[in-house]
Amino acid sequence: MQAIADKQGVKRYIISLTVNGDEYSPVIKGNTLLVNLLRDGLDLTGTKKGCELGDCGSCTVLMDGKPVDACLVLALEADGCEIITIEGVAQHGELDRLQRSFIDNAAIQCGYCTPGMILSAKALLARNPHPTEPEVRAAIAGNLCRCTGYVNIVKAVLDAAEVTA
């Protein structure tokens, strides 16, 4: 990838990535985190920051279909990747079945974990369309929620999975 240096000699890199189907070629620093590129560079603030340590999962996005903590991924590592954020889940204003199910099951309270939860669940249903309850719990174990006790979130994911059956 192309690199340029600023006056202090700090390198900048031009990367190419696809976010929610759109192609971008941002100029980034070597230490730029994917979460900051998304939030500050592309104004995709649906990706939340809760800890910046990979504990909470609020910044979960899909990177080539796999859920990752965007605070643990360098923007450089996303070069050439396809990223899906929460803004890319609904299509043409039409909610995804998981989004619908989160609403119908009262699985949202403060909503801060919701984007990450939905993306982790989306990745689960993509690889396992009919998960068991323990499989759902394991899939979202890296997404912390302080409001719901996970009760309705687990129900919402199981409900959304049934819709596909």
């Binding site: 995709l44 603030t45 649906g46 990706t47 939340k48 920051k49 954020t85 929460i86 803004e87 889940v89 609904a90 909610l95 989004q99 989160f102 609403i103 119908d104 009262a106 949202i108 909503g111 801060y112 919701t114 984007p115 939905i118």
Partner: peptide, 17 residues
């Protein structure tokens, strides 16, 4: 359903940060 649910599931809900 919660009045703010749609904004929260689509990432449109803006928090202070």
């Amino acid at each position: 359903p919660k009045i703010d649910a749609r904004e929260k599931v689509t990432g449109q809900a803006r928090y202070t940060a």
